[in-house]
Design a protein around this nucleic acid. Structure first.
Lengths: 339, 339
DNA sequence: CTGAAAGCGCTAACAG
DNA sequence: CTGTTAGCGCTTTCAG
């Protein structure tokens, strides 16, 4: 077994063919005679040769690397999605270079620059917003990008989300059907499209029912801030139901309600979340929530990205995937509610 | 703004210098006069030039890419570690190429081969075991590897873990001090060194106290299997305390105990986990557990890996980091237990 | 189908 | 310090 990097040239010599013949044998699209293939494969195995994908990328202009920007992994939805995304891309012969975009605002722009340095074939930006000229740079560089779980006003940008407006609406309808009148909302980070759309859908349904929002506070998608928001909201004239912008916060809200404020869920107050992360189904929470279909969202993301890679002239695509309301025990179930 | 890939040559022409001058300006170690640097930077900015790191990698032999193999992300410990690891490496100028090693056994070997194809400068293998000849291939390729949260018999392999033996022991001592006599153990996947060491430490302490293990079952680090193990273990002659090989399973065990078997924790049965993941501290679980210090584990992993990259002749290093017992409410607290 | 030859974009001696 | 000259390992025309 060789102790240094084996090159195609060495394989060529051992196989008694030209270096380009070796290249062809290892290049999916290329043609070589059975005989050549055989000789080359044998020599390659003997030397332990494997093509250098970086060199290949330099000359071909295709790296088969996808850059993934992700802001945080503490919201369970993201590790789940990341795992699925990586697997899906691996299956199609791509690999994922991961970049954490720390909370810093400007940071994200420099992160994308770094990604571009790797000649990635595409970029997936999960739950982050980019400055509009950044999208410009990517387009200029000919690198397609798709937003995952976040939309952007820029209509030239492809994006995959769940149907957040419809989801927010479903939450409201369930609460209203349950007879709740004093309904509160705990918002996520207000810069997020997901937050905005969920709230908009929720409010639209309340408005149609002629119910005013009883209370509103902001949790910024952060555990501690959701707890504080809960305390403030229940300090006086508490609501009898709350819709929380995602499960990650909803869990914190439930804990605060039960263990700090000694309220019963759902007897004293109904709670609905958004995402349907794994914890939501654990009996300790048993959280009623709107499911974000991670599988389909990932599949769409991959589809869009790869088709843009293969046909660059293709236009942007925005997909909103509908997710069902998952009825569990954290919110009062309306009489005769059809399952 | 250019609409195609800008090369160093174009920058050179615009700046009126040679192409190598441009290269030097963008190469950390190299030297260039103030004047040249200025001219080049200006031209580069004007054209939107950034060096192609792949081409650089091909010629320099250093990709500044670290391959990360990870088996699953549903155990919360891993996303946390992944995030910290990525950040730590990013800070030191490295980037992470991520590979999911599906459950398949042979799979992992082929995954490592793929990683090697990218000329990575190093590999971090999180919670996976490799065939011994795989480590050979990496060494032959001159690519250092360190195991994260898993040790291997092969003494030539660097590894970072918590002190699992000591941790298991601490769990036992706490339970024994609490006066428990019928103590059970729910094991993780028995191929994992973490599982083996935790159990060994746990058993050693029981033996010293002349207490026999009351019951043992296997949960394989999987939620559903942990639930089944719990059901079996409590079907008849149930224990009054259980040590569970990690938090991920311990949560499932607690849920099963409380909601399925209607047992109170810790009144009827004490539960101790291992990891101290975020959920463990949530009031709904309030799980007593052994902390794995993810920050320090990651820091050590990065240190070892980078020093091996910089000085390849350096020997393997194995680090076991001690983690404290975090006393919460899921296990009876012995009288006068020193906090 | 095959080999020779020309590069991909960049770094790294090497003289000056 | 700078430009010239070789490559890195590979893909891709181009004749044959």
């Amino acid at each position: 077994m060789a102790t240094h990097k084996v090159t195609s040239l060495e394989v060529a010599r051992l196989a008694g063919v030209s270096q380009s013949a070796v290249s062809r044998v290892f290049t999916p699209g290329a043609s070589a005679s059975k005989k050549t293939v055989e000789k080359v494969r044998k020599a390659a195995k003997e030397l332990g040769y494997r093509p250098n994908v970086l060199a290949r990328a330099v000359v071909s202009g295709k790296s088969r690397i996808i850059g993934l920007v992700v802001a945080y992994l503490n919201n369970q939805f993201y590790p789940e999605a990341l795992e699925k995304l990586t697997n899906a891309l691996q299956e199609r012969g791509y690999h994922v270079l991961i970049f954490m975009a720390s909370q810093q605002a400007g940071n994200i722009d420099s992160v994308v620059e770094e990604i571009l340095d790797f000649q990635v074939d595409g970029i997936v930006a999960a739950s982050v917003a980019l400055s509009s000229d950044l999208s410009g740079r990517c387009r200029a560089a000919g690198v397609p990008m798709v937003l995952f779980n976040r939309a952007q006003d820029d209509p030239a940008m492809s994006a995959v989300t769940s149907d957040n407006f419809a989801g927010g609406r479903k939450a409201a309808e369930f609460l209203l059907a349950g007879g709740h009148k004093k309904i509160g909302y705990i918002a996520g980070w207000e810069g997020a499209s997901t937050q905005r759309d969920r709230e908009a859908g929720f409010m639209a349904a309340l408005r149609e029912a002629d119910i005013e929002l009883h209370a509103r506070d902001v949790g910024n998608f952060v555990t501690e801030q959701a707890q504080e928001a809960t305390r403030r909201m229940f300090a006086n004239d508490p609501p009898d139901a709350v819709f929380v912008a995602n499960d990650h916060m909803a869990i914190a809200v439930m804990d605060t309600l039960r263990f700090e404020l000694s309220l019963n869920v759902p007897q004293d107050v109904s709670v609905i979340g958004y995402d349907d992360v794994t914890v939501a189904s654990w009996p300790a929470y048993n959280l009623t929530t709107i499911r974000q279909p991670a599988n389909r969202m990932v599949a769409e993301t991959v589809d869009i990205l790869l088709s843009k890679i293969e046909e660059p002239e293709i236009g942007p695509r925005r997909v909103e995937i509908d997710g069902p309301l998952i009825v569990r025990g954290s919110a009062r179930i309306p009489e005769g509610w059809k399952t």
